[in-house]
Write a protein that binds this DNA or RNA. Structure first.
Lengths: 190, 190
DNA sequence: GAATTCATGTAACTTGTTACATGATTTA
DNA sequence: TAAATCATGTAACAAGTTACATGAATTC
């Protein structure tokens, strides 16, 4: 029940709507814990059932009324308890379709492999560039919450280090496949 | 429906039981696509309903009979089609409770943070050591399937590079927090 | 004039986790 | 003698995805 706890955590900053939460997720927590809108709305409802959040309506014109959620005292306690109870294993859960396909690489052509690895490399470089943007967002946010800056910074750094490792890996792997090709071509000709 | 496709892929090597599949997963694909036994049994049943795998019983004494699953011609086609259709986005899905808690680091004590980061560092170093074991497993397996070696090797390398990046990150982060502490202590005393 | 943002959700479905149930054999 | 390995699963629940539904305001 980690998404629900993360939502509680974000609501300790200030009351937010489901929509607010989604956009907050999308350019921060997203790297290590993505969330869809429908999940957020569903979890907010569940949290309210349990009495961990409550909401009030802010009427608007020309748009649907806002449902602004606030964390309750019970909610704060539940969050604190969760926050201090670190999981038994600290390594993340990863699901990586791309890696599964590489695993079956011997059933793919060299051209296809190079093409997809190059795609992966480009995509990773793009993500790496976008971390600069996120750093800016953090900068702005942390004017109001300076105590968070250190932690948000080290998480961005972590993400960047991982992406950089992936870039190196992709480059080396493309080279390896190229080398294999140029080795095997003369043999094939003979 | 990626786990089901991965199962089909493994069955292209040779027929296997659910239990066999689980142990194969646990020291190979596990890094990038973990699977539980109950999921494997459930997916095998679903794949059989669709006609992508079939099974025969191998009676045993003193143990439950083996249900050995084989991939069908339809199954092979479905797998090939899936294998060549790479997803729109190549970056993995990550869910990382540890990172979420670090995100809320300003609500944790420095001691707690150092303790958990040190735990993370140790755990990551352990995993890094265990990649040596996996390399050995791959070595043995690839005597029979040499065409897979290149791909399995680059995936282990990728995993190792990621773990190494995480080690560097954890070490640097612990230092940063220590530095922050020694800076703030004199102020606190004054 | 088309796309994006703001703002709410529901419903159906798929995937993943956890607990339960059974029981002989082998290894430490 | 305790734990791990071999071997099968089911059932209940939790979490995640995708498609559907609505519609004004704003920006390009």
């Amino acid at each position: 029940m980690s998404l629900a706890h993360t939502i509680l955590g974000l609501l300790t900053y200030e009351p937010k709507t489901g929509y607010d939460l989604k956009s907050f997720f999308d350019n921060s927590i997203n790297f290590f814990w993505p969330a869809s809108l429908s999940q957020i709305y569903r979890d907010l409802a569940a949290l309210e059932d349990k009495g961990y959040v409550s909401h009030h309506i802010e009427p608007q014109e020309g748009r649907p009324d806002k449902k602004v959620y606030s964390i309750t005292e019970d909610g704060r306690q539940v969050f604190q308890k969760w926050l201090h109870r670190f999981p038994a294993t600290l390594s993340p859960t990863i699901r990586d379709q791309f890696a599964v396909r590489i695993f079956f690489g011997s059933q793919l052509s060299d051209d296809e492999l190079r093409f997809q690895l190059t795609r992966f490399l480009k995509e990773t470089l793009n993500e790496l560039n976008s971390t600069a943007y996120v750093t800016g967002v953090v900068e702005k946010y942390c004017l109001f919450r300076p105590e968070d800056k250190l932690y948000w910074d080290i998480l961005i750094k972590r993400h960047r280090m991982m992406l950089e490792a992936m870039v190196r890996w992709a480059e080396e792997s493309i080279k390896e496949i190229n080398a294999r090709c140029s080795n095997s071509t003369p043999d094939d000709i003979l």
